[in-house]
């Protein structure tokens, strides 16, 4: 009894308030994760999905998948896709944020319009781009041909190399507003007088950008990059609609491969295994994010 009193007396009471959320997380998040891990250690196929005893095969699924070339391709594809998307999204988003940070007429409505790609459901964007990238009737080939940039139509979605490029272009288009809006919010937190005093000290635009804007935005930039990474890394609908992982697995990502294993090929355990690999990678990235986040907090 005394112990409980002591427990409730101090700051410890906070733990009690956290409890409902923690229980919720344990049931609705913790359980699926654990059951997914268990599933990846078993051999669950059409023959065993309904039997109570599911053969436990240890890490065999992981070993088997790592020997299979498609998993390696998917990991490489997922990273290529994510890194290239982030680079372009971030650079273009940053540039646009700087432009719209200036006060000029129509800045606000135009900024609102630029948010559009972010708000369109991804399936619709994907279908739209699928038509636009079509080899024979697509508008992109038509424009490139009219400008005499290409002579022959480019087989955007039916050639291994260009299919990935097409996906990246589409996703950059979707992701720019996200980057732009977060960075412009960050920009508004920088007081104008810092720039003023810098001007008085004779700093030019480039110096102001690298010495004031970038350092002041450090934590915003870190959040944008890491959140963007996580968001892009788990891409599913875009790839599923535009290429479904093809041609010849050249755009297969971890999420689409996991789906294909589970629901096209009925290899439930291997599907779960791929999902876990995806999870582990994102978990590491999240840890990184928190480390940066807490480091920032600590210095203040």
């Amino acid at each position: 009894m005394n112990y409980i009193k002591k427990l409730l007396k101090n700051d410890n009471i906070g733990y009690v308030f956290v409890l409902p959320a923690l229980i919720y997380m344990a049931v609705f998040v913790g359980y699926p994760i654990l059951s997914n891990i268990v599933l990846s250690l078993q051999d669950v196929t059409v023959r065993t999905i309904n039997s109570p005893a599911k053969p436990f095969i240890g890490l065999n699924n992981y070993v088997e998948l790592f020997q299979d070339g498609v998993l390696r391709t998917s990991i490489v594809n997922t990273f290529t896709f994510t890194v290239l998307c982030i680079i372009f999204q971030f650079t273009i988003g940053f540039a646009l944020a700087l432009v719209f940070n200036n006060k000029f007429s129509f800045a606000k409505p135009v900024r609102g319009l630029i948010m559009m790609p972010w708000m369109i459901p991804i399936t619709i964007t994907a279908l739209m781009y699928k038509f636009m990238f079509s080899s024979n009737v697509g508008i992109i080939n038509f424009i490139l041909k009219s400008l005499h940039i290409i002579q022959q139509p480019v087989d955007w979605l039916t050639q291994p190399g260009t299919a990935m490029a097409a996906l990246i272009i589409t996703n950059v288009w979707i992701g720019i507003p996200f980057n732009m809006i977060l960075i412009s919010t960050g920009l508004t937190t920088i007081p104008d007088d810092i720039y003023e005093s810098a001007s008085i000290d004779g700093a030019n635009r480039i110096q102001k950008f690298f010495r004031i804007t970038v350092p002041m935005l450090k934590s915003t930039i870190a959040s944008v990059l890491i959140l963007g990474f996580i968001y892009t890394f788990k891409v599913f609908d875009l790839v599923y609609v535009m290429t479904n992982g093809g041609p010849v697995n050249s755009t297969q990502t971890l999420s689409t491969y996991s789906y294909k294993m589970s629901f096209d090929l009925f290899k439930y355990s291997q599907g779960a295994t791929i999902a876990n690999i995806l999870f582990v990678i994102l978990f590491i990235v999240s840890l990184l994010y928190l480390k940066i986040f807490f480091a920032e907090e600590g210095t203040k």
């Binding site: 997380m25 998040v29 997914n36 959140l227 996580i230 599913f236 999902a275 994102l282 978990f283 994010y289």
Partner: peptide
């Protein structure tokens, strides 16, 4: 916290 964040963001997928 890291778990919570990953999972929250994964919600669309997993």
């Amino acid at each position: 916290l890291a778990l919570v964040i990953t999972v929250g963001l994964l919600a669309g997928c997993s």
